[in-house]
């Protein structure tokens, strides 16, 4: 039984890592083929750093994901504070349901619904090219918001409501009590939300595909257009580099909180959910 279990896990991991292994191997190919190894070389890594379009797309992606993450973290944190204090149950339920829509809808529907809005408003205003950095930013903030709110809200709920009240009694203004007492307490939730928003944005493909114009290309859109033509190993080289960075970050963050919370509390499900958008979305990603 034990041997069988181990064998099963090995097979599952082979399945999950086979394409990644292929990607890493081919990135060191000296030839142009993506199916046959002709020899080992770093040629495609050099090519990658000479390719202006790819570097430009990487820069665009970083700019977009940081802006979207900052904006959605600010709006989302404020929203979580507001939702937590809403007295009216109906109102609160309505806001939460609407917030969850982008998480439940398939990414393709979120993408085309936003595209239709932009198309409609764009034509109304008589703009020629209405899809730009700004439409992408709006789209990314929209799909990030539920994840930020869902990371911050539980932290606010955990907080003892007597603490900010005590701050008020001790003479804080409501603003001071928020910034000095509540904000530090919910900071871990805000940080999680920010990181989640950043990775979702960085990885998003499906929604960006419908809301980006030709003027502003993100990395995933760039990869998609490259894949439509013939793929050269440079795209594998790029992914191998991203893979290395991600691996490094994950290992470092895992080592650093080894003494912290036990594994179970890390809620892989939530992170998984986040990636989920990313995936088809992000990963799609």
């Amino acid at each position: 039984m034990k041997v069988l279990g181990r064998l099963w896990l090995i097979l599952v991991f082979i399945f999950l890592y086979a394409p990644i292994a292929v990607m890493i191997l081919i990135s060191f190919n000296s030839g142009e083929s993506t199916t046959e190894m002709q020899g080992l070389s770093l040629y495609w890594y050099r090519e990658l750093f000479r390719d202006k379009a790819t570097l430009e797309a990487l820069k665009n992606t970083l700019l977009l994901s940081v802006s979207a993450a900052v904006l959605s973290t600010v709006i989302g944190t404020l929203a979580a504070v507001g939702i937590d204090r809403m007295k009216n149950r109906f109102m609160r339920g309505a806001v939460m349901s609407v917030t969850n829509i982008p998480m439940m809808n398939p990414d393709i529907v979120t993408g085309i619904s936003l595209m239709l809005l932009f198309v409609f408003v764009g034509t109304l205003l008589g703009l020629e090219s209405y899809l730009s950095f700004w439409t992408l930013l709006i789209a990314h903030v929209t799909f990030n918001l539920p994840y930020v709110i869902l990371s911050v809200l539980p932290k606010i709920k955990q907080m003892d409501k007597n603490i900010p009240e005590a701050a008020l009694d001790l003479g804080c203004t409501p603003w001071q009590s928020f910034f000095r007492v509540e904000l530090p307490f919910i900071m871990p939730g805000i940080a999680t939300g920010f990181i989640m928003a950043f990775t979702l944005s960085f990885d998003d493909f499906v929604i960006s595909n419908f809301t980006s114009g030709s003027s502003f290309e993100t990395l995933t859109i760039h990869i998609y257009s490259m894949i439509k033509k013939s793929v050269k190993p440079d795209i594998y080289a790029l992914s191998t580099l991203i893979f290395a960075v991600v691996l490094l970050l994950l290992v470092v963050s895992n080592l650093s909180d080894r003494d912290g919370e036990p594994a179970k509390e890390k809620s892989p499900e939530r992170r998984g959910a986040a990636r989920f958008r990313g995936k088809e979305g992000g990963a799609a990603k």
Binding site: I223, L250, R275
Partner: peptide
């Protein structure tokens, strides 16, 4: 989780 961080297109 690591495969989830890879670009799905790739």
């Amino acid at each position: 989780m690591i495969p989830l961080w890879m670009n799905f297109l790739i």
